[in-house]
Simulated scan of single mutants.
Amino acid sequence: MRNIEIKAKVRDLTKLMDKVRSLEPQKCEIIKQEDTFFNTSNGRLKLRKFENGTGELIFYNRPDTEGPKMCSYEKSDVSTENFNSLHSVLERSLGAKTTVKKTRQLFIVDQTRVHVDSVDKLGNFMELEVVLNDNQTPEDGEQIAFNLMTKLGVEKEDLISGAYADLLNKI
């Protein structure tokens, strides 16, 4: 699976939320997540836990650059029954780097997942994930991302590279 992503610091949460809602999203959902990042030799591996005890194991690879960037990823659902044992196996075999706790407001706008995240110890952020169809190029996704950035008032100086885990490791 592929998408084009951007991540940005949010300066004015109320203003951003008003702009997101003006896009008339098809879906709006609040999700509490806890992501544990593990040491890997390439890409990133995280185990995401949801409030109900289920989760996802997610491997992804993307450059640590500002602005729209290509991300390839694979996900596997994790049931409540085996979440803790999987976490333990991964931690013992790979070592855990960082845990990120956040409340995510998820909006779906056409083929884009708009995330408005409140990240413990970091503050508020916004992510765009333009999910590419098989017949779309990365450039198509970048154009969609740039258009949404403009509509949402995302400035170039607000863009960040890397993951929330990287930012947490710097504090």
Score class of each variant (00 low, 15 high):
R48N: 12
L13D: 01
S85C: 10
F125Q: 02
I58E: 08
S85T: 14
S118I: 06
V116Q: 01
Q143V: 06
V78G: 02
E127R: 05
Q26V: 11
G141H: 02
G55K: 03
N39Y: 07
R2K: 15
K75Y: 11
A145G: 04
D140T: 04
L16R: 03
I144T: 09
K15N: 14
T103Q: 08
E81Y: 07
I160Q: 07
G162Q: 05
L122E: 06
M126H: 03
S79W: 00
T99D: 09
S79E: 13
R44F: 06
T36K: 07
S76R: 09
L122C: 07
I144H: 01
Y164C: 00
G55V: 10
K15I: 09
N42C: 10
P138E: 13
E34T: 15
L45I: 13
L57A: 12
N61P: 06
M70E: 15
S22L: 05
L159I: 12
E81D: 15
V116M: 02
V78R: 01
A145H: 01
Y73H: 10
S41D: 11
N52K: 10
E66R: 14
A145F: 01
K49A: 09
L167P: 00
I6D: 01
K49D: 02
D77M: 10
K19Q: 11
Q26L: 11
G153A: 06
L128F: 00
N169H: 10
N135H: 09
E157K: 15
R21Q: 12
K7T: 05
T54M: 10
V109Y: 05
M70I: 15
K151P: 03
F38V: 08
I58T: 14
D166K: 00
V89P: 01
E56C: 07
V20D: 00
E157T: 15
K27G: 08
D35P: 03
L90P: 03
K15H: 14
D158R: 04
N84A: 12
Q136R: 01
F107S: 05
E66P: 02
E56I: 13
F37G: 02
P68R: 07
Y60F: 15
T150Y: 07
P25Y: 06
K156A: 15
F37M: 08
G95F: 04
V20W: 02
E91V: 00
F83H: 05
N133S: 10
T98H: 07
L152G: 03
V116N: 03
V10M: 06
I6P: 02
K9H: 12
N82G: 13
S118L: 08
L94I: 10
N39K: 13
R2E: 14
I6Y: 00
K32Q: 13
P138H: 06
D158K: 03
D140Y: 04
